[in-house]
Design a protein around this nucleic acid. Structure first.
Length: 377
DNA sequence: AACCTTCTCAACCGCTCAGAC
DNA sequence: CGTCTGAGCGGTTGAGAAGGT
């Protein structure tokens, strides 16, 4: 038994809005406001529309100061960096871009920006991974466990992983990243994942990036999240982290929970089916580690600690930060840092990270934090 | 010109969350 | 404390536009 519908589905109009409907809705809200009751609104106006539909129409199209299309490069930068940091939290991203709606940004990302950033060559690389993980070309893979690992990464995680790697391929001779001797010791799982990536065509010079999450430091997450000016981000991350800890505990038999996330169940089902329950459990824990990597991106961004890399000392991190800072503005501007296929003209001509706008300063701060955690230059 | 494919984006759907009761 | 309800969110769909053959 599902929940009751919010309106009489048989008695509401669907599909595109007519100019008359738009005018009615706009005039009413401008005159009276929404009244904090979208469900009742269409009846008051005399519209045969669902309240949710009215809300969406108003928020995405009719309300004042909405911008459509024509995303600037500055906006591209913000969307990209926030997407890498927090994933598809479109409403949070939209909150940083005045006049933009979450729907617009979501559409823009899915149809244009993602392609622009990932590029065809890199896309084909990832497609190979996906193909292999889907079991359609198993000969090219290193075995079942690795397949399962990738099979169970979400598309979003894969995209972010790929963007992550794109960032890491930037050619900076001073980079810690380009000096394997400086790389910290990896955990066995990290090594395994790197080997898998290499076996699937990822550049061997790409760095260790898998890091377990630090389950304990919620306060610092808040502090830094607030430091970069995104409180909701900090809250989201903290909640997410708490969730991850519980999942991890559950998977390790530390405690039980009735509300095991669906994704974990799906992973478990696929694994159980493919490789048997004993191995499934082990690999499930490893997948948790891979998910931890994705989360660890965010943790490192927030905590600014290089967690999971067992860095020899804090000095190491500071050196990295200095290294990044020491790049003169021109060097940084000239980095086509998003993609090999990124339009180099636009990338090099704009002072993307030097913008005086508040959000961009925030974003730059985030990027620097991010760079410290992951040696992105 | 006709047909097919790809792209774009407005709108819908179903879910979660939070507040009221 | 549990239930109900509306708001809000992210994923997905599908109609129309644009581009290619």
């Amino acid at each position: 038994m599902g929940r009751a519908p919010c309106c009489d589905k048989n008695n509401v109009k669907k599909g595109p809005w007519s100019p008359e409907e738009d005018a009615k809705l706009k005039a009413y809200i401008e005159e009276n406001g929404t009244g904090n009751n979208w469900i009742a609104l269409p009846q008051k106006i005399g519209l045969k529309r669902c309240g949710k539909s009215c809300r969406l129409r108003w928020l995405n199209y009719l309300r004042p100061n909405i911008k459509h299309g024509g995303f600037t490069e500055e906006e591209d930068n913000i969307i990209c960096s926030l997407y890498i940091s927090i994933g598809s939290r479109w409403s949070i991203i939209a909150a940083q871009l005045p006049g933009r709606t979450d729907n617009d940004i979501k559409n823009y990302w899915n149809t244009r920006l993602k392609k622009k950033l990932l590029g065809k060559r890199k896309q084909s690389q990832m497609n190979r991974l996906l193909l292999a993980s889907g079991g359609q070309d198993l000969k090219e893979t290193n075995g079942l466990e690795e397949n399962s690992l990738f099979q169970n990464l979400s598309n979003s995680a894969l995209e972010r992983l790929q963007l992550h790697m794109q960032l890491q391929t930037l050619q900076n001779p001073l980079s810690f990243y380009n000096n394997p001797a400086l790389w910290p010791k990896l955990t066995p799982l990290q090594q395994k994942m790197i080997q898998t990536l290499q076996a699937n065509g990822i550049n061997e010079n790409q760095t260790p990036i898998f890091a377990p999450i630090n389950p304990s430091d919620h306060n610092q997450a808040h502090e830094l999240g607030q430091k970069v000016g995104i409180n909701e981000f900090a809250n989201t991350m903290t909640n997410f982290k708490a969730n991850e800890v519980e999942k991890s505990n559950t998977n390790n038999g530390i405690s039980s929970s009735d509300s095991t996330p669906i994704e974990s169940n799906n992973q478990r089902n696929v694994l159980d089916k493919n490789i048997g329950q004993e191995n499934a459990r082990e690999i499930q824990i490893q997948i948790q580690g891979v998910q931890g990597f994705t989360q660890a991106e965010i943790d490192d961004l927030i905590l600014n600690k290089g967690i999971g890399f067992n860095l020899p000392s804090e000095n190491h991190q500071i050196a990295e930060f200095d290294c990044f800072k020491e790049m003169d503005d021109g060097s940084r501007d000239n980095l086509a840092w998003w993609s090999n296929e990124f339009d180099t003209n636009t990338a090099s001509s704009s002072n993307s990270w030097g913008s005086s706008s508040n959000i961009l300063q925030q974003t730059e701060g985030m990027y620097q934090d991010y760079a410290v955690g992951y040696n992105l230059q």
